[in-house]
């Protein structure tokens, strides 16, 4: 478990850094797929099998393909990065990102860590599969939000069609 976690964490962070830093957008998308797959494995580690499957199907299979399409369609003649705006504050961004990370970690270490050991993880309810639990919760307790989410997706689909449609 421990080894799996650290390995996966290392992969996830490395791939995330690669996604953000790669110049080539297609490569970035591929790194993103890998990253998503790693996250899916992490979900398995966390006993969220259904979510892992969804992660693979939706993220790695759907959204990323979408990204790939867009990357293909936006056939850039010159890389967006070649143009440098003098007002940009890249270092500032790095700095702030790092600072926020540091602070999160600080909070975790000072506020969360002491109790982390004390809180023993309860065992999963025997005989009840993860998918079943998720299904119960989703279709019984959160039925209305679920339907709202479906409407949201429908609207997004229509909006995407309208936006992407070529001007007549």
């Amino acid at each position: 478990m421990t080894i799996a976690f650290y390995t996966l964490a290392a992969f996830i962070l490395a791939l995330g850094v690669l996604v953000v830093s790669t110049k080539n957008t297609v490569h970035a998308v591929l790194f993103l797929v890998a990253n998503f797959l790693c996250v899916a494995m992490l979900y398995v580690l966390l006993q969220a099998e259904f979510l892992a499957v969804i992660q693979v199907l939706v993220y790695a299979g759907g959204i990323v393909v979408l990204y790939l399409f867009v990357v293909m369609l936006v056939n850039l003649k010159r890389g967006p990065e070649t143009h440098v705006d003098p007002r940009r504050r890249d270092r500032m961004g790095l700095l702030i990102g790092g600072a926020v990370l540091a602070e999160f970690v600080a909070i975790l270490l000072y506020g969360f860590a002491p109790r982390a050991t004390g809180a023993a993880p309860a065992a999963a309810a025997p005989g009840v599969g993860n998918v079943e639990q998720v299904g119960w919760s989703l279709y019984v307790d959160y039925l209305v939000p679920f339907e709202v989410a479906s409407i949201l997706l429908l609207v997004a689909m229509i909006g995407a069609i309208v936006l992407a449609k070529k001007e007549p």
Binding site: R87, R88, I96, G97, A99, V100, E103, I107
Partner: peptide
């Protein structure tokens, strides 16, 4: 008001940073 989204995001993050710092 530069019109650059990233600048706004940066400012927002500075605000987050400031709040979290204050918390700490």
């Amino acid at each position: 008001q530069t019109g650059l989204v990233q600048t706004y995001a940066l400012l927002m993050m500075i605000g987050v940073f400031a709040l979290v710092s204050a918390y700490l």
